[in-house]
Nucleic acid binder design. Structure first.
Length: 572
RNA sequence: CGGGGCAUAGCGCAGCCUGGUAGCGCGUCUGCUUUGGGAGCAGAAGGUCGGGGGUUCGAAUCCCUCUGCCCCGACCA
């Protein structure tokens, strides 16, 4: 590709509404353009990256036995009524009617359609197991699209669905997909981690998310420093601590804490460390009541764990100030578990505290030297908090560290949720009709592109891993208009490298060197080859890897070896 | 959905308070000079000031309204 023929110019400044670095760089480098909130055009340079990712995904899906198909993006509402999701899905589902006033939606996901396919095509256990997949544009009408294509409304996703005779077969395919996903992200050249995740509303079983590691990631993931264990923090269990509660000391005492609302303020005022200040959170119960959750001041409530407690509303909803006052008789900053009549659950660690501080349920007052069993009944205990760095790993090996991640893949077992609702059955070996257990496996293709940039960039621009770079090599001739030798040498090199199968950008513009270097860095092309009079005289080519600080001057006949070492063996 | 903000040239912004026919930087085009890290000089093109309505002799500017976009919040004890 000759840069002079690429009409999309790079930009020095990013639009003011681009918040995160990947969004800014994608705009500046001319990868994408916004059409509307959360809706983007992929320009030629950006599309190439999307295609690279798609190709890796497709190859690994095929290798794992997946069968590619494409389902419609527009889906009849009727199907969604069958599965029960028409009413359940909410405003994220973009709905509309056709001219005959029939209901339709733009697919945010394709369980209904694939289950419909399966129920029509699959009759016998002999056809199973089978995995279908597609790479397709989806639409979710997010409340608040942001971060460019990272959290867009329209996006490209690979979704796969597997169908089975029984649970054992599903488990087996799940493992196959787990390995396929690992292979996909391995090949992209990104640093990633597979983590245990909350499976959400469906099924109790553990699912796995694949995260691209990046400091800007929206998810926190916990992983052991001594084993393979890794989990989304929201799903990481915190085992009950083994220690004994220390003996109670002084008698409970009420102290004035005027103006002290937060744990930090109370802790400061009373000179008691946060871990011995217990906080009490009121959440909505199942039926109009409230439930009190007690945690150590230095711990964070885990909403997903809390919502799983019987009697607590799911999804979790914090009680309003009025509800708190009627339950505790004080404002949120001065409430505690002593004397409450509602149900109380204490996090394991909070239940282990002794001589602790908590709100006195009277505005502006706290209790000191409070002890379970002495000053208030032993609480029911539960795992309520987020895991944090330094906690013991749930698998018993090592301690946890926390990293940030961007969720780019998720695999989970649907079991028979859809096959039962939509009567997707096959005859088993005994001739009996059984609903097929299903698996569901997604990869956010366009999000992978953004995540790759979040993980790989510097102040000059993008640093593509070679496997997903839009082009592998940029030829930068200097003083092209005036030097026939430079023109000849660079044209020849351009020709030769393309012949070898490399994807090459040729900066044949009449621009100053600084402009060319800056664009090359911004675009993140892995290898830059500078052609100038000097090098021609010396018989060398200046080769620079985007990842390395300094160029190397390589003899012309060593070039292939250099490229091999930086890009892997040639061809695309 | 609640709260806040913004909308002026392709991009980044000023002008608005205090009404008088729109400006800066980058980019684009032409010419000359320049050519190893976003060059210099000279010239040029490009704007229904988001839409509609109102006030006024006169509105980018004041008022009303609509639309679009952005930010914050939806763990706080």
């Amino acid at each position: 590709m000759r840069l002079s023929r690429l009409p999309v110019a790079t930009q020095k400044e990013a639009p003011a509404d681009a918040e995160i670095v990947s969004h800014q760089l994608m705009l500046r480098a001319g990868l994408i353009r916004k059409l509307a909130a959360g809706i983007y055009t992929w320009l030629p340079m950006g599309l190439r990256v999307v295609r690279k990712v798609e190709r890796i995904v497709r190859e690994e899906m095929d290798a794992a036995g997946g069968l590619e198909l494409i389902m419609p993006s527009v889906q009849p509402g009727k199907l969604w009524r069958e599965s029960g999701r028409w009413d359940f899905y909410g405003p994220e589902l973009l709905r509309f009617t056709d001219r005959h006033d029939r209901e339709f939606c733009y697919g945010p996901t394709h369980e209904e359609v694939i289950t419909d396919i399966a129920r029509r095509e699959l009759r016998s256990y002999r056809q199973l197991p089978v995995t279908f997949y597609q790479i397709q544009t989806k639409f979710r009408d997010e409340i608040r699209p942001r971060f460019g294509v990272m959290r867009a409304r329209e996006f490209v996703m690979k979704d796969a669905y597997s169908f089975h005779l029984d649970k054992a077969s599903l488990d087996e395919t799940y493992q196959v997909m787990y390995r396929a996903y690992s292979a996909v992200f391995e090949r992209t050249g990104l640093k990633f981690r597979a983590v245990e995740a909350d499976s959400g509303a469906i099924g109790g079983e553990v699912s796995h998310e694949f995260h691209v590691l990046a400091d800007s990631g929206e998810d926190a993931i916990a992983f052991s420093n001594a084993s393979d264990y890794a989990a989304n923090v929201e799903a990481a269990p915190v085992p009950r601590p083994s220690g004994e509660r220390a003996a109670a000391g002084d008698a409970m005492q009420k102290v004035a804490t005027p103006g002290a609302q937060s744990i930090a303020e109370v802790s400061d005022m009373l000179s008691v460390p946060p871990e011995r200040c217990l906080k009490t959170l009121f959440v909505c119960g199942d039926n109009d009541d409230v439930v009190a959750l007690v945690l150590r001041g230095d711990h964070e409530l885990n909403a997903i764990k809390a919502a799983k407690i019987t009697g607590v509303a799911d999804p979790l909803k914090m009680a309003g100030a009025a509800q708190v006052r009627s339950a505790a008789g004080a404002a949120p900053g001065s409430v505690g578990p002593v004397g409450l009549s509602c149900r109380i659950y204490a996090d394991h660690a909070a239940a282990l505290a002794s001589d602790f501080v908590c709100g006195a349920n009277e505005d502006g007052f706290h209790f000191k030297s409070v002890n379970w069993d002495r000053d208030l009944p032993e609480p029911e205990t539960a795992d309520l908090r987020n895991a944090r760095a330094g906690d013991p790993s749930p698998d018993g090996q090592g301690t946890l560290e926390i990293a940030r991640g961007i969720e780019v893949g998720h695999i989970f077992k649907l079991e028979t949720k859809y096959s039962e609702a939509m009567q997707a059955t096959v005859l088993d070996t005994g001739g009996k009709s059984v609903a097929m257990p299903m698996g569901c496996y997604g990869i956010g293709v366009t999000r992978v592109v953004a995540a790759a940039i979040e993980q790989n960039h510097d102040e000059r621009g993008i640093i593509w891993p070679a496997a997903i770079a839009p082009y592998q090599i940029m030829i930068v001739p200097l003083n092209l208009p005036k030097s026939a030798r430079v023109r000849e040498a660079s044209e020849k090199l351009y020709e030769r490298l393309q012949q070898k199968g490399y994807e090459v950008l040729f900066d044949d513009r009449d621009a100053r060197p600084g402009v060319k270097f800056a664009d090359c860095d911004l675009l993140g092309i892995p290898v830059r080859l500078v052609i100038a009079e000097r090098g021609i005289d010396a018989g060398t080519i200046e080769c620079k890897s985007r990842r390395e600080p300094d160029p190397e001057h390589i003899a012309a006949d060593e070039l292939d070896a250099y490229l091999d070492s930086r890009l892997g063996s040639g061809s695309s």
